[in-house]
Every structure is written in C-alpha cells, then in structure tokens.
Simulated scan of single mutants.
Amino acid sequence: MASESKMIMLRSSNNEVFEVEEALAFESQTIKHMIEHDCADTVIPLPKVSSNILAKVIEYCKKHVTSPKDDNNELESFDAEFVNIDKNVLFGLMSAANYLNIKSIS
C-alpha cells in the first residue's frame, strides 16, 4: 500500500507559510478539526502563532511523529533539550500548544 502524504499549508501570524505533512499537522487537534470539518481553505491561518514559534512547534511535532514509538528514551532526551530555551520562547511555545491543542507539548 503506497502512502502518499497529503501536504497542509499553515500561515503564521506574520504571514509566513509552512508546508507540513498531514500526519504532522494532525498532532494539533485544532488543525485536525478544521481539516476534517472543511473549515480550512488551501492555507490554514494561525493568527495567534508567530513564525518563529510555529517553526519550533513543527520541529517538535516532526520529532514526535517520526520517532519510533518504542524508543521513549530518545523522545525524553529530545523533550528535555527542547524546553531548554529562552523563557519568552518557552512561553510562546506553551501558548501555541494550548491554542493548537497539542497535548504532548503542554
């Protein structure tokens, strides 16, 4: 069975567009709901998430989607290093995770 990834376009609050695989976008329950209920056009606007924070959210989700599910040590190490950032960036990340409903970040 060939798996062809559907790509999703996300637009940050400062109008930067990110193209991500649907599986990655579905880490966000907010985005998943918008897609499943045809509430989104070709680009999903995320007015409460800046491009620098969205890039970090995408990095986090990508790691969690692509990592082997049986390797918790790798994810725990990644998560510990991932949150070792500037407090303002961390606050933006937590706000974005809340807005996007990404439970694994918060």
Rank of each mutant, 00 (worst) to 15 (best):
residue 1 M to R: 07
residue 3 S to I: 11
residue 3 S to V: 09
residue 4 E to N: 14
residue 5 S to M: 15
residue 7 M to A: 14
residue 9 M to N: 15
residue 9 M to T: 14
residue 10 L to T: 00
residue 11 R to I: 11
residue 13 S to M: 08
residue 14 N to S: 11
residue 15 N to S: 06
residue 15 N to A: 05
residue 17 V to H: 02
residue 20 V to T: 06
residue 20 V to W: 06
residue 20 V to R: 04
residue 21 E to W: 02
residue 22 E to V: 06
residue 25 A to F: 02
residue 27 E to T: 13
residue 27 E to Q: 12
residue 28 S to C: 05
residue 31 I to A: 10
residue 31 I to G: 10
residue 33 H to G: 13
residue 33 H to Q: 15
residue 34 M to D: 02
residue 36 E to F: 10
residue 37 H to F: 10
residue 41 D to K: 13
residue 43 V to E: 05
residue 46 L to D: 05
residue 46 L to W: 05
residue 48 K to V: 04
residue 49 V to S: 08
residue 50 S to L: 07
residue 51 S to R: 03
residue 51 S to C: 06
residue 52 N to K: 13
residue 63 K to G: 04
residue 63 K to P: 07
residue 65 V to F: 15
residue 67 S to F: 03
residue 67 S to R: 09
residue 67 S to M: 09
residue 68 P to E: 11
residue 69 K to H: 09
residue 71 D to W: 08
residue 72 N to A: 03
residue 73 N to W: 14
residue 73 N to M: 15
residue 73 N to Y: 15
residue 74 E to Y: 09
residue 74 E to I: 08
residue 80 A to F: 03
residue 81 E to N: 05
residue 83 V to P: 03
residue 88 N to H: 08
residue 88 N to Q: 11
residue 88 N to T: 11
residue 89 V to L: 15
residue 89 V to G: 14
residue 89 V to Q: 15
residue 90 L to R: 09
residue 90 L to T: 09
residue 90 L to K: 11
residue 91 F to V: 15
residue 91 F to G: 14
residue 91 F to H: 15
residue 92 G to W: 02
residue 93 L to Y: 06
residue 94 M to W: 02
residue 94 M to N: 01
residue 95 S to P: 06
residue 97 A to M: 01
residue 98 N to E: 05
residue 100 L to H: 02
residue 100 L to Q: 00
residue 100 L to P: 02
residue 102 I to L: 04
residue 103 K to P: 03
residue 104 S to G: 13
residue 105 I to G: 06
residue 105 I to C: 06
